[in-house]
Nucleic acid binder design. Structure first.
Lengths: 202, 202, 202, 202
DNA sequence: CATGAATGAGCTTTCATTCAT
DNA sequence: GATGAATGAAAGCTCATTCAT
């Protein structure tokens, strides 16, 4: 009587545990022991399910990147004007950045640092950034078209907004107490609004 | 004939070496061996000049924070309109962020991640962020007053700009190749310009 | 099939190994390598079973103190006169001090030196000394009462005997060859006998 | 104009500094840096005056042993009865052991532990112990002869008294607070008095 | 699948000793 | 004589990884 395989769920548990530990400790200090403890598993089991620590990290990066992507798809699927979608997007990203899922945000910040030194992480991280940039550009492009403007300026604004988002994540994790409360979503919306308004209609 | 102390210069060398290594490897992977090699010194000498690794980090954080502060003071000392000073400031910060001193920028990004997990680093980091926020707020306040507006909105804009700057640093270090070239300084100036223009004159 | 834990026995082995090494080398020179070698284990395993070296020491001190306590209880449980118990006690302590368990004696001497500089060791050591003093005082008190004297003088004699015992341990470990053979148990018994006889009966 | 050599006084300063540090820290933890700091000298100077750390230790052991010897000679030089000399001796040794020169006593205790593991130290330590034993035996022999008894029993009593003294030193350094105040000199005198009285006159 | 003991490399840190000045 | 920088070998400790059970 073979056991029912539970590999998939164990793997997910372990990845989630790494997310929690990495958010507190960073990747280097996220020891296998600590991950196992967080997941409530025996240390030896980690290497049964994963070849090595790096593999868990890679899958966590993918998971977090996909999570953002899914959120966008939900938003995109929503009915409503381009501008409504943009607001929903920024709210989803930056409302979250300020307390909603500090775990995921801090983990993402740590991964950003890890991306500086590990090519494998950097590749996935850059892919996620590029994708996000594309999505945001598309979203802004729709807004511009909806107001009868040329969509060409969307890329520039998207880059600025993405930087603002990345910075808001970083600062909320490391210096949240010295920043104004809840500034980020509002600042991003204002920036977008002013910028879009400034693009001349065709 | 007593030997002439050279501690100050050695300490500076070691701090600079840590900056270089931390920019490539992060703090955890910046081993004493690696720092010593970077500085061209024997490993044991590091601990002759510093109590421990943490002390070097703390001094590096201070040095980088002071560096930014000094740059601002140079700018502030320059003659010119508030707006000219603002532009000079953003150029100094973000021109730098895009290639001028990648070493310092990457080190600062790594330190931001370290700040998430180490209280001692976090405290200094937050102090630096708070200081930067004050400077930027003051700078923007002058701009608003110069155009006959109320300075009250300066803090909000300052927070948004600071986030954009932090994000630009982060992305330039970890995903520079997927971002548009030289977007950051321009995006920040545009954001500031549009925002300031939108504040009604008294 | 979970693996059966063997931590308790491994810990005991390691503590015993420390006792052997400390008896030869003292605590500072009892390196983890040396302890591991003595126990026939890999060095890394020591820190799997113990948080740090200090923890092993503390447990060794406790073990040795308890060992003395148990010996006393065996003696106290024996039938016989107070004086017989006293003789058995001194024989147990000082016969031991002169060859019976040189390992434990030398380790105890080294621990006494360590107690001078480490508060944590000192606390346990003092507790053991205080306990021994109480036991000896009680034992002597019974002797005095048995001969119809006041038990008040017991404390003074107990202190003197304890010092003689501690000194005999010290000298047997560091200068055994220059002391008369087997003097200690006899000297202690003589001291006790003369002292007790000198206390007036009520 | 040649400098006046101050080697002898420097060496004495360094030896005294080792005594102070060893009393607090033990020999292993008495680093050259710590000794130099205690003596108010530059670290490099230590090895100018001494071949190595061991040499300082050896000289300290000699110094402490000689110190005891000198004290005895002063006593021996005093006029008075053998018994008066014995009392003066015990007072000198054990009054000292209970607070008068805790520095020297603690250092001696540490050296006793070091003697267990270092042959070179052990040799000097044993020599000092043997010498002390001889002195004490002689002193007690005089007392016995003065009372018309045979001096043969002196050695046995001397050994017991020496152990009591060594133990009093050990306990005053490591567990002074749990022992009765000032017990040692009195206990030793009582022990000697009772023992001497019990030896039959010829 | 699961457990937890075991291994050994690598880290930070301490320190006796040497040596240029 | 004197200074203090410099060296390199060890120490304690952490940890990814392996493996017997």
């Amino acid at each position: 009587m073979p056991r029912k395989p539970n590999t998939d769920c164990r793997r997910a548990e372990i990845i989630t545990a790494l997310q929690a530990v990495i958010a507190r400790q960073g990747y280097e200090k996220a020891s296998i022991q600590a991950i196992a403890k967080e997941a409530g598993l025996a240390p030896g089991l980690i290497h049964y399910h994963f070849k090595n620590k790096q593999e868990i990290l890679v899958l966590l990066v993918r998971k977090l990147a996909d999570y953002g992507q899914q959120r966008f798809e939900q938003i995109a699927a929503q009915a409503g004007s381009p501008e409504a979608r943009l607001h929903a997007y920024l709210e989803a990203r930056l409302g979250l950045g300020e307390g909603a899922a500090p775990d995921a945000v801090a983990a993402w910040v740590m991964i950003g640092a890890e991306a500086v030194r590990q090519k494998e992480v950097r590749d996935i991280y850059q892919q996620a950034v590029a994708q996000e940039l594309l999505l945001l550009t598309a979203l802004l492009g729709e807004c511009l078209i909806a107001q009868g403007s040329d969509a060409g300026k969307a890329a520039e604004l998207a880059a600025g907004l993405l930087a603002m988002m990345a910075g808001a994540y970083q600062l909320s994790s490391s210096a949240g107490s010295v920043m104004p409360v809840g500034y980020a979503a509002h600042a991003a919306k204002t920036y977008a609004r002013l910028y879009l308004d400034a693009v001349p209609t065709a």
